[in-house]
Design a protein around this nucleic acid. Structure first.
Lengths: 356, 356
DNA sequence: ACTTGGCACTCCGCTGCCGAGACTGCTAGG
DNA sequence: CCTAGCAGTCTCGGCAGCGGAGTGCCAAGT
C-alpha cells in the first residue's frame, strides 16, 4: 500500500516530495493544454531527473490516491477534484498581480464621482475582461454602514419620493403614495426630525419606533412612517441577490464548453442571479480567497466549473463579494491574485470616498 | 421570364396568389421545423390542391425570383432574406397577443411603487421569457419629459448630492465635490430657487444660464453651478446606450446556434451594449414595429438573426425601444404582437403613473 | 397552356472498417 | 528502486459504401 512508509519526507499533505511535484506539474500542464497529460510529456518538458516509466508508476499511485483520473486506458492523466484541491491548497505558487493589471484596476476605480452601482458594474466588466472568464460581483449589503441623511421630497399632495444617503453613497430612493394629504412643509420638517434623530447611527440599528416617534411628533399618518421605513429597508438590503455579471462569452473559448448543454445551464444560472448568489453566499465572511472546485459547488450541472470568491469590504466589514467563474481548469494562482487585488482596490475605493 | 404575364391577379407584391401562398407556407413550415422544406411535405401537410410536381415548378420560379434558396441540389427550399421580408411585409397573418401573455405583462407592470430601472429590467426579463428569445430594452431618453424637482443635499462642507426628479420618476443623482465651502442653507435656498425657476419645464429646454442666474443670485461659486448642470444633464440623457438584456440562453435552443462562433459573436454584441443599441437606434421614431432581417442588420456576424423593435412612449413621445433578437427563423407574427403589446402596456404604465 | 406521374440523378449523412498513433501497465534486468 | 522495452488497449481520422430524400425534366394527359 502506498501508505506503508511513504518513501520520504511528507511536507505536502501526505504526499512525498516527488509525488507532490508530479501532481503539481500534471495540474499545471493540464491547465495549460486542456489535454490529458502523458508521462512522457512530463519528462520531456520538465526536468524531473527520472524516466517516464517511473513517472508512470507515480501517476498510478496518485490515481489510486484519488488525485488523478484517466479518461480511458491509454490516455494521459487528468486531475480529479481532489487533485485540484491539493494543488490549490498546497502546491501552487501564489502569484502577484501583474502590475499592468493593477494599473488598470486603479484606473477603473479612480474617478471619484461615480454612483455605487456604476462602480460595481464597472468593476465586474473589468474583472471579466482581465480574468478572461465570467466575473460576477454581489451588490453591497449596506446594513453595517451608517445612516447619513434622509430627504423626503414632495411631489404632490399624496406622492413623494424618499432618498436615503448612507456613508457609502446614495443608496435608496423610493416613490411613495399616501392615502391622505401632506404638505411640502410636513415632509421637510419630518426630514429634519429624522436626520437629527438618526444621524451617524448604523443603519441596522435604526428601528421602526424611532421613525414612528418622529412621525407622531409631527402628527403625520402611519402611511408616511411606512414609506420612510420602506426606503430605509431598501437602503439596508440593496436587493442582495441582485448580482452584476460579465464575460459569459469568454467561457466559449474553453474547449470543455463546446458541449452545449453545459453552456445552457451556465447561462441559465447566470441569468437567475439568485442561484449565482447562493453559490458563493457562504464565502462572505472568510478572510482568505475561497476556491470552490467542481463538485464542491454542489450543483450537478457545474461539476466542470470552479469559482474563486473574495469579499470586499467597507472599513472593516465585508459587504459584498467578487467572484470569477470558469472552467475547473482555470489558472487558479493568477485568478486568486487578480480577484484579491481587485477586491483590495475596490475596498479602498469604497472606504476612502466615505462621505464624512 | 416569370414577369411575362404572371399568370393571374397579383395582389401580393408582384407574386400571383398561388406563389404567394406557397412562399408563405414554406416560410411558415421552415420556421416551425428548421428543416429545408420539400415540395412533397407541402402538398401533404397543406391542402394546396395541386401535386408536388407543380409545387416544384413554382418553387423553382420563387428561387429564380430570389425568395427561396436551396442549401444544395436535392434539398428542400429555405427562405432568403427577401423571402422573409416578403413574408413579414405582405404574407403573414398578424396575430393577437395571447390573453395569457397579456395578463402576465399586466401583472408584471401593475405594482406602482417601483423604480424606473426596475420596471425596465423586469419588463426585459419577462419579454425574454415570453418570447423565448433574447429581449433587450433601451433605457428611456428623458429629455422630452418635464423637470419636476431638484434637491441638493448637504453632506459636508465641500460635498453634497444632487437629486433630480422628472415627470417620469427620480432620474438622476450625483455626488459632487466642491473646491470651496457651502452651508446646508445655501443648498436649500438654491434648491428652492431652482425649483421655482424651472418647475414644469421640458428638461431639454433648461439652459445653463438659468442655473447660472440662480447661483449668482445667491452668491454661490461656479462649482455649484457645474454640479447642478451635471445632474441635469445626466437626468436628461440617462446613459442611453445602457441596454437591459435578458434571455441569451434561449438562443441555444435554436439548432442554428450550435455553431459556436455565431454564438460567441452574439454574446459579445450583447455584452457590448453600444452595438446592440446602434442596431436598433433608427427604429426609435417609427410608428409601426420595425423588423430587421439578416443582412439588413448590417453586421456580418448577424446574418442569421433578426430583430423586432417597437418603441415605447411617455405620453406622445417615443422615449425608448423594446426589442427581441432571435434566429432569422423566428415566429415573426407572434413576436411582433408580443413586442407591440408589451410596449403598449409599458407606455401606459409609464404615462399613467406620471408624477403630477 | 398548365398539370402531373414517373424516372434518373445528385447529394447528404450514416455506418462500418482499417490503420496510425498515443499511452499505459507490466516484466525483467541493472 | 529505477528503467528499457514490449505488448496491449483505446481513440481518432479517413474512406468506401449505401440508403434516403428531394429535385429537375420529360412526356403524356386534360
Amino acid at each position: 500500500m502506498s501508505s506503508g512508509s511513504d518513501g520520504g519526507d511528507a511536507p505536502k499533505g501526505g504526499l512525498d516530495k516527488r509525488k507532490a511535484y508530479i501532481l503539481a506539474t500534471v495540474v499545471y500542464e493540464y491547465i495549460a493544454t486542456a489535454e490529458p497529460v502523458a508521462s512522457q510529456a512530463l519528462t520531456q518538458k520538465y526536468s524531473l531527473g527520472v524516466s517516464s516509466a517511473t513517472v508512470r508508476n507515480e501517476m498510478a499511485e496518485l490515481e489510486a490516491g484519488g488525485y488523478l483520473v484517466q479518461p480511458h486506458t491509454s490516455a494521459g492523466r487528468v486531475p480529479s477534484d481532489a487533485g485540484y484541491r491539493m494543488y490549490v491548497d498546497q502546491l501552487m505558487h501564489p502569484e502577484q498581480l501583474a502590475s499592468d493589471d493593477r494599473k488598470r484596476i486603479r484606473d477603473e476605480l479612480r474617478d471619484a464621482s461615480r454612483e455605487l452601482d456604476d462602480i460595481i458594474e464597472g468593476t465586474t466588466r473589468l474583472l471579466g475582461r482581465l480574468s478572461k472568464n465570467l466575473a460576477f460581483v454581489t451588490k453591497p449589503v449596506n446594513d453595517t454602514t451608517t445612516f447619513k441623511h434622509i430627504q423626503l421630497i414632495w411631489l404632490g399632495a399624496r406622492t413623494g419620493v424618499a432618498i436615503v444617503v448612507t456613508s457609502i453613497g446614495v443608496s435608496a430612493q423610493s416613490v411613495f403614495e399616501l392615502s391622505s394629504d401632506v404638505s411640502p412643509d410636513d415632509l421637510t420638517r419630518l426630514s429634519n426630525a429624522l436626520n437629527a434623530r438618526m444621524g451617524n447611527r448604523a443603519l441596522r440599528d435604526i428601528g421602526e419606533h424611532e421613525v414612528a416617534a418622529a412621525t407622531q411628533e409631527l402628527g403625520l399618518s402611519d402611511d408616511v412612517k411606512n414609506a420612510v421605513m420602506a426606503a430605509l429597508r431598501s437602503a439596508a438590503s440593496q436587493d442582495v441577490s441582485n448580482v452584476s455579471a460579465s464575460g459569459a462569452q469568454n467561457l466559449l473559448d474553453q474547449p470543455e464548453f463546446h458541449d452545449l448543454r453545459k453552456l445552457r445551464s451556465i447561462l441559465r444560472i447566470v441569468e437567475e442571479q439568485k442561484t449565482l448568489y447562493d453559490l458563493v453566499a457562504d464565502s462572505m465572511n472568510r478572510e482568505a480567497p475561497a476556491v470552490k472546485i467542481g463538485h464542491e459547488l454542489g450543483v450537478e450541472e457545474m461539476t466542470d466549473f470552479s469559482i474563486v470568491t473574495v469579499p470586499y469590504r467597507f472599513g472593516q466589514h465585508a459587504i459584498g463579494m467578487l467572484s470569477i467563474l470558469g472552467s475547473r481548469r482555470m489558472p487558479y494562482a493568477r485568478l486568486v491574485a487578480l480577484a484579491s487585488g481587485t477586491a483590495e482596490t475596490l475596498s479602498q475605493r469604497l472606504t476612502d470616498v466615505e462621505i464624512k
